[in-house]
Structure formats: structure tokens, C-alpha cells
Write a protein that binds this DNA or RNA. Structure first.
Length: 260
DNA sequence: ATGGTGGCCCGGCCA
């Protein structure tokens, strides 16, 4: 089974790019972030034509998350308990082939002295509470998406360049650490222990071609799934121009699992 | 170098 997370930076601008990629790479479960669409505008018909069921949570302009599955999609739940604690359509969950799948778009935080940074830490704490309320680490659970956190310094092209900034701060990494302590595993590190494999590159300053990226798109799995993980990779090709269309600033993270 | 690029949707905001 192929599980993918991809921040597409507007599905309106990227639909054909995404469906072309799906035809080549054949994901079974594809989690998207930053669709930047309302639920009404979400192109569920385009995915249905490819044999996929969908669940989407979006307010139309910012954020927006989706789960796209061809192995079943049951019991979708959008958001946490209130609009306030979700901070703008940032999480959706559904059960696909017995796996409780969560597609998340963690707040960026902007800067460490910002109220948005405080909100980012609060959102991560709410995620931990939500998981505690809705699942257990002995169940097959996947929490995937754009975490806007580089878990360690090897996940950043130049740690010195990020000194004092968001995405690498100790409180953010500690908040991620609490999710891992709960029972989730950042399986990508099993296959790339030395790091230096990134999932996001700034559009500006030729960052992609210079290798100036970060690994902030994560696939977190509970043990029943992590133990069945066969490979994990970033599809850098999808960060390049494809079929004449412009890419997202994120590349898909692709995980293959030995499950039915 | 407070620039640079890209998407929202048309004046700034957000990443």
C-alpha cells in the first residue's frame, strides 16, 4: 500500500499536475494540504473518475486539507471540536483500509515572537489531545502532513541559517516529540538516518537548485504500521516543472507499507 | 539586499 502526503499549494492551480502524478505514482492514500479551496469547490469528481473517494476540509482561501483514497474511506471527521481550536481547516481524519488516517497542516508560526507561534504550539498540543481522545497507539494510525517543523538539524540545509527562527525551535521540536512519545514514529528516518533529504524548498533565490530545503512534511505511524514500512522517499522530480505546469514548493513524501 | 517567488484575488496577505 502506498501512502503519500503532499502540500500542493493550491489544488485549483495544481489539479492536473496532481492527477498526472497520481497516474504515474499510483498512491492508494493521498493526503493533501493547502488545497486553498472550499468544500464546494473541491474537485471530488476528478478524483472519483480515477477511482478514488475523497474527504475535504476547507474554507476556500487559506489552508484546506484532504484525504483521497482508493482503498476505502469511512467515518470522516473534519477539524477538532471547534473552529477556534482548528485555526482554519487544518485537520481531517478518515479510516482507509482499517487505518485511521489524519491529514494535517500545522500552522506556520511566522516568527518565534508572534502570537501565531503561540498558536502553533497550542495547535500541536490540541493534536496530541485529539489523538488521545480518538485513537490508541496500538491501533494502525497515520498522522501525515505539513508539520512546519524540521525534526532535527539534519533536516535543514543549514542549521545556522535558521538560528532563532521557527520550524527548528526547541518548543516546536518538543511539541513534535510529545506526539512521538505518545506512540508515533517518524518512519522516514529509518530509511534516511543521515538526513539531508528535504521535502520543501523556498520558491525564492533558486533554493531548490541550490539544495536549500527542509524536511517538514512528515509521515508519523504507530507501531503496527511502522513495522510494516518498506520504503520512504521524497519525489524530488515533482518539485521540478512537470508538463509545463508550475510545481508546488513542496514535494510528495511517499511511503510504501506491506499491508493488504 | 527587508529583496527574492508564487498563490490567493486585485491590494495586500500568507508562506
Amino acid at each position: 500500500m502506498r501512502l503519500v502526503t503532499w502540500n500542493v499549494n493550491s489544488l485549483t492551480a495544481r489539479l492536473e499536475y496532481v492527477t498526472d502524478w497520481m497516474g504515474t505514482e499510483q498512491p492508494d492514500i493521498l493526503c493533501l494540504q493547502e488545497t486553498k479551496q472550499s468544500d464546494a469547490a473541491f474537485p471530488d469528481g476528478a478524483f472519483a473518475a480515477l477511482g478514488y473517494e475523497t474527504a475535504h476540509h476547507g474554507d476556500g482561501r487559506w489552508n484546506g486539507v484532504a484525504i483521497i483514497s482508493r482503498v476505502g474511506l469511512e467515518d470522516p471527521v473534519a477539524g477538532f471540536s471547534t473552529e477556534e481550536d482548528d485555526q482554519g481547516t487544518r485537520i481531517i481524519a478518515a479510516t482507509c483500509a482499517g487505518i485511521r488516517v489524519h491529514s494535517v497542516y500545522v500552522p506556520n508560526g511566522r516568527s518565534v515572537d508572534s502570537e501565531h507561534y503561540t498558536g502553533k504550539l497550542a495547535w500541536l498540543a490540541r493534536l496530541a489531545t485529539y489523538l488521545d481522545e480518538t485513537c490508541t497507539p496500538s491501533d494502525p494510525v497515520a498522522v501525515v502532513g505539513d508539520f512546519n517543523i524540521a525534526p532535527s538539524d539534519v533536516d535543514v540545509w543549514d542549521p545556522e541559517a535558521f538560528a532563532g527562527m521557527t520550524h527548528v525551535s526547541e518548543p516546536e521540536r518538543a511539541a513534535l516529540g510529545r506526539l512521538l512519545e505518545w506512540g508515533l514514529d517518524d518512519v522516514f528516518t529509518r530509511f534516511h538516518p543521515d538526513g539531508e533529504v528535504f521535502s520543501w524548498w523556498d520558491y525564492r533565490m533558486g533554493a531548490f537548485h541550490k539544495g536549500h530545503g527542509m524536511r517538514i512534511d512528515l509521515v508519523l505511524l504507530t507501531d503496527p504500521l511502522a513495522d510494516r514500512c518498506r520504503s520512504a522517499a521524497v519525489d524530488r522530480e515533482a518539485r521540478k516543472n512537470r508538463a509545463g505546469n508550475k510545481p508546488s514548493d513542496h514535494a510528495p513524501v511517499v511511503v510504501d507499507l506491506d499491508v493488504d
